[in-house]
């Protein structure tokens, strides 16, 4: 096929096919949050009975500092990376924000806790349930994000997939944190991040295949 012929058929195709809207990361993020809440309602179905007291607890609030800062940073990277121009390397530094938050929380906890309480806080009372629930709640949103990436044009699908996994995991963790009885930053840094990391790996693997263009 000569290039002129191709251009002619593409021009005709543009006329035929409906105009497509711009990539849809924001609606996907909102729908993903909703989905995570629904899955949470099905899987867990309740929030902590002591939530009113917990809201005044610094450790309880720090959980949200971790998950929300990660969600914000991952969203910024995901949205920017969905375009052919890609994310500017310096913009990736936004991911340092949640990293600093996590590390400060861990440092705070290690300083505050007596040595014999460290292991107990790390293991918590709920680690397997946390791992499973956060993963299960994150998979649906991750699927939505990867589909959104497929309609977009990510310069590096694997990088976008990682961002998608981080965002899905952070959303799931934020919702789950309202239930989870373990508040120690050591617990959060271990089990929450393990589940989120798994979703990020899954995101990278699927986006590489699904969002190729």
């Amino acid at each position: 096929m000569r290039t002129e012929d191709l251009i002619a058929s593409l021009t005709a195709d543009a006329k035929r096919s409906a105009r497509r809207p711009a990539p849809t990361i924001l609606p996907a993020a909102l729908a993903g949050t909703l989905l995570a809440v629904v899955v949470f309602a099905v899987l867990v179905g309740k929030i902590r009975p002591d939530i009113a007291g917990a809201v005044g607890e610094i450790r309880f609030l720090l959980k949200f500092a971790v998950t929300l800062s990660l969600a914000g940073a991952a969203y910024a990277v995901l949205r920017e990376s969905a375009y052919p121009e890609g994310v500017h390397r310096r913009r990736l530094l936004v991911l340092a924000v949640p990293a600093v938050v996590v590390l400060s929380c861990v440092a705070f906890e290690l300083a505050a806790l007596p040595a014999d309480a460290v292991t107990r806080s790390l293991v918590g009372s709920n680690s397997v349930a946390c791992l499973v629930n956060v993963s299960l709640m994150g998979i649906g949103p991750l699927g939505l994000f990867v589909l959104a990436l497929r309609r977009a044009a990510p310069a590096h699908p694997a990088l976008s997939g990682i961002a998608a996994g981080l965002l899905a995991g952070a959303i799931a963790a934020t919702v789950y944190a309202a239930y989870c009885p373990d508040d120690s930053p050591l617990f959060v840094a271990t089990w929450y991040l393990l589940a989120i990391g798994g979703l990020a790996a899954l995101g990278a693997a699927t986006a590489r295949v699904v969002a190729r263009w």
């Binding site: 191709l6 251009i7 593409l10 543009a14 497509r20 711009a22 990539p23 375009y83 052919p84 044009a153």
Partner: peptide, 17 residues
Amino acid sequence: IVQETILAIHAKRHTWR
């Protein structure tokens, strides 16, 4: 390459802001 590129530009034209 030229054809691949303009095909991609066509398929992804909604990603231009």
